[in-house]
Design a protein around this nucleic acid. Structure first.
Lengths: 201, 201
DNA sequence: TGTACATCAGTGAACGCGCGTTCACTGATGTAC
DNA sequence: TGTACATCAGTGAACGCGCGTTCACTGATGTAC
């Protein structure tokens, strides 16, 4: 998990990269220890040396993808000063991540109920708390200043994340052909409309 | 799949009911043929007689749950005359279904990337097309009358389904404690705000 | 600088378990004459 | 109405495969003196 030698880090990196590749190309069903070791060129024992179990590897991969996505969103928000531009930047950052890191985005969405995260829930919760806390901190003064509608925090999150997550899901599953460019153009504004304070209040 | 004798229907029902119960209590990992047959009291061979494979059973269960959820939404929309009341009714119907049919809602959300639906994609697509077509038909005159913002169909869907699906997911996973009553109170209006035409246009 | 030693990293054959599936069979139901 | 027969429904022992995991081992790296 925390290699003490340089070459350890390289091996961990190879395994995680191969795992993501395997998941993207073979799906949940093909996501197995043997497939990952074969794709990575790393031995089975080495995988267990670094991750302890296959669930451990999956959880590490999930955590890494989650951190990448969250960092992108936090960055977007931090560069913005007004609530409107902040929300718009966050939405665009999420959708851009989905395209540019398609495999990571897919893995994040698909792992939600997979079960291999159960044993590592605390670790993941910590990442989410940290990153979403940063976004919440950015929002707080705006909420207090009445620049957002007076909604409970979780509902603001749901109104922002819901449409973009649903857009990403549809694009990733390619069942519905959703136009991501169009979504990137329209959604930021529409989402902001659901959050802004009532004009006549 | 389509039993020719009465008792066949009863067996199918027992299997589907037991399968949903197993999934709800044991999750993806515990969702196996043996667990389902044990919970249902039906023999293994009988399961294969009716569903052909375990994936077949899972797909049938998914389809049944999907139909139930969709019917609830279509009903809600059909009882409404204005776009605003229609959207509000649809949102409330979805959230009510999530509470009242918790296990079915969980199975629907969790099955998205599970892989056992791959072989039955066409069947599922047909159900979705039918039901969402009904909702789209309800919407069309309102869109043409300019009572919705001029958005592409898929984006309207995403703006409606996104926040409620995300709310349901968080409530179902009970990682975040979201208040469903509060959501039912606030979300319909907020979602409508994201869809309604720009007041100053 | 060289040597000894502890620790970290990497290897792959072997194992057991439980999964989905098959199959030969019995019993129940519906139908034809 | 009774009998023969085809089909549907249900049973459970048995099978093979591939999964995650273990383990005894070798090799590489870093460190102490």
């Amino acid at each position: 998990m925390s290699p003490k030698q340089q070459r350890g880090e390289a091996t961990v990196e190879q395994l995680l990269t191969a795992a993501l590749r395997v998941y993207a190309s073979s799906g949940q069903q093909g996501f197995t220890v043997n497939a990952v070791t074969a794709a990575s060129g790393v031995s089975l024992g080495s995988l267990y040396h670094h991750f302890g179990s296959f669930d451990g590897l999956a959880a590490a991969l999930y955590t890494r993808c989650l951190e990448q996505l969250c960092d992108v969103m936090v960055d977007a928000v931090r560069r913005s000063r007004t609530p409107r531009t902040g929300i718009r930047a966050l939405v665009k950052a999420y959708l851009r991540f989905t395209v540019e890191q398609r495999d990571a985005a897919l893995f994040l969405h698909a792992s939600a109920y997979s079960g291999y995260l159960d044993g590592h829930a605390e670790e993941i919760r910590a990442v989410k708390e940290d990153r979403f806390g940063a976004i919440a901190a950015w929002m707080r003064p705006h909420i207090e200043a009445g620049e957002f509608a007076p909604l409970p925090g979780p509902l603001i999150e749901v109104l922002v994340m819901g449409p973009i997550a649903e857009t990403a899901r549809r694009w990733l599953s390619s069942t519905y052909d959703i136009d991501l460019n169009e979504a990137t153009r329209c959604l930021p504004d529409r989402i902001w409309r659901s959050l802004r304070p009532d004009p006549d209040e």
